[in-house]
Design a protein around this nucleic acid. Structure first.
Length: 511
RNA sequence: GGGGCGGUAGCUCAAUGGUAGAGCAUUGCCCUUUUAAGGCAAGGGUUCUGGGUUCGAGUCCCAGCCGCCUCACCA
């Protein structure tokens, strides 16, 4: 029998002993008078004399995190919502039966304690227990109290342990919650309506990622988990919901990395009678206020660097290529390299030679097959992205990589689109929305290929008329990473996708 | 999918190719103001799996599984 199983059986047996003492193994409720945080807030200033004079009776609950037996007495720390409070028990205060219950208590158990506050010789605020009740037993052995749970895989798999033992992990999710509240409030104040659109879609549109496929039995049709809510949200704008936002999951059947989880949370929002310029300014303010709301400052530490959200740098995509051109790759492309096919291909060739020799990056495949826009985009992503540590708005993208964005009036091959980068990651993407149905249909057909299906209801919605609109998506998980200095997207997602585990059964319940 | 690193007791970690250890946790005894409580004693191992080299493998080699990092994929 393994130690796990041995401990499991010992602790189940203790539940039986507890019932023999007249207690419930798993009681239904416990009426506490205080949260541990309330006790800390109200009585941390009280000295021993005052606590003795105005004796404060409390009933508290918490999980046992430390346990120190002293013969016919003992100490423990209860933890509740990240707060700890010490309790002191002694046989003469608890009585024979109460003390027998104490003897059956283990690390990790949930306990209800009734008593009065006092200060120990070392001055620690402590509950002098008069009555204790086991509320739920930890039948599995608890992680080590000092080093805690380090194994990164187990921290994700068994988040319930991680959240209790690693309080910095708990703090990340409290910050995440604060960000979500802030964002909802900010959008409501700007007159936005929060909506929910289908996560199961008959066609996966709005982005170019591989979808997950499932099947609906009653209708006998394939359904796709959405890769973006975009096309549904814009239908709503066409329907007169002039400002809408949605915060929810997208699903992309692609690789997993420190910046990618197959399901991730996206904030998408659309406002009528607006354009990408307006959204750039508003996004800039939004990020600054979000940083302040969540961290208390517009300057945020991320991977040892200070990111300043008080203002975004701005840079056109086309400028980015010469700006971040590495010396080792030879002469910089000229300022209008993108307008001339031969200059562009020369730049790609120079970059590819550089990528091969320095091992500094991935080569850009098949320059002759790609159109100019794809090449400029590839150059930008390979050269610039990692340098965009300070919050930066990159604007004006090639049309060929932006099938849903509206062209620039004076440059038909370029669109009114921007992305926001910070910490070397893309965190937002927005544009003036294309609302000409014929133009949209042409671009869909070009993207999908002649025979492939396109979302013709979306085109139909545009045919009824969608007002001029600007929209944007913000990657919430990555934003949380920035605001919590997280190294991996998995640190900011409670249950990141992992290969399934086979759970060890504790051969409990007497076999 | 490519490359790099890792997998040892419940947890955190040690161990030149030579008897697998420590701290915490667990069990028993002592202990009525401790706090990583303390003292005495005990139990606990498929060293990820399978092959191979060797007198001898946790250690070296090969294959596989799992994880992390990285590159690729991913508007």
């Amino acid at each position: 029998m393994s130690l796990d199983q041995e401990i499991y059986q010992q602790r189940r047996a203790k539940l039986g002993e507890l019932q023999a003492l007249g207690a419930a193994a798993y009681p239904h409720h416990y009426a506490a008078t205080h949260r541990l945080a309330e006790i800390a807030a109200e009585y941390s200033g009280w000295d021993a004399e005052r606590l003795e004079r105005d004796r404060i009776h409390v009933k508290v609950t918490g999980r046992i995190m430390t346990l120190r037996g002293h013969g016919k007495a003992g100490f423990a720390h209860l933890q509740q919502a990240g707060e700890r409070l010490q309790i002191y028990v002694r046989q003469d205060a608890l009585g024979e039966t109460g003390f027998a219950v104490w003897k059956l208590v283990d690390l990790g158990d949930w306990l209800g304690v009734e008593g009065y506050l006092f200060r120990t010789r070392t001055g620690e605020l402590t509950v002098h227990a008069e009555k204790i009740e086991l509320l739920a037993k930890a039948c599995r052995p608890w992680p080590e109290k000092w080093h805690g749970l380090q194994d990164i895989e187990r921290r994700y798999r068994q988040r319930y342990l991680d959240l209790t033992v690693n309080l910095e992990s708990r703090a990340i999710f409290l910050r995440r919650d604060r960000l979500m509240r802030f964002l909802r409030e900010a959008f409501q104040q700007r007159g936005y309506l929060e909506v929910e659109t289908p996560m199961m879609q008959p066609m996966a549109g709005g982005a170019a990622a591989r979808p997950f496929v499932t099947h609906h039995h009653a209708l006998d049709i394939p359904l796709y988990l959405r890769i973006a809510p975009e096309l549904y949200l814009k239908r709503l704008v066409a329907g007169g919901l002039e400002r809408v936002f949605e915060i929810n999951r997208n699903f992309r059947n692609e690789g997993i990395s420190t910046r990618h989880n197959p399901e991730f949370t996206m904030l998408e929002f659309y406002e009528a009678f607006s354009d990408y310029r307006a959204l750039m300014s508003w996004s800039e303010q939004l990020l600054a206020s979000a940083a302040r709301a969540v961290t208390g400052s517009e300057q945020v530490t991320f991977h040892g660097q200070t990111l300043d959200f008080s203002q975004c740098q701005r840079l056109s995509l086309r400028e980015g290529v010469p700006r971040f051109w590495p010396v080792a790759a030879g002469p910089k492309p000229g300022p209008e390299f993108w307008a001339d096919r031969s200059q562009l291909e020369a730049a790609v060739a120079a970059y590819n030679r550089y990528a091969a020799t320095a091992g500094a990056g991935a080569p850009i495949p098949s320059p002759s097959g790609a159109d100019a826009g794809e090449l400029v985009m590839a150059l930008f992503e390979n050269l610039a992205e990692e340098h965009l540590v300070q919050p930066t708005i990159v604007y004006d993208f090639p049309l060929s990589v932006s099938p849903l964005a509206k062209s620039k009036p004076d440059e038909p091959d370029w669109v009114e689109r921007f992305e926001i980068y910070a910490g070397g990651m893309e965190i937002a993407n927005g544009y003036s929305e294309l609302n000409d149905p014929e133009e949209q249909e042409r671009r869909f057909r070009q993207q999908a290929g002649a025979d492939a299906a396109i979302d013709s209801d979306y085109v139909r919605a545009l045919e009824y008329g969608m007002p001029p609109t600007a929209g944007e998506g913000i990657g919430i998980d990555r934003l949380v990473m920035l605001l919590t200095d997280a190294a991996s997207i998995r640190d900011v997602i409670l249950f990141p996708l992992q290969r399934p585990e086979t759970v060890a059964e504790p051969e409990g319940l007497g076999g």
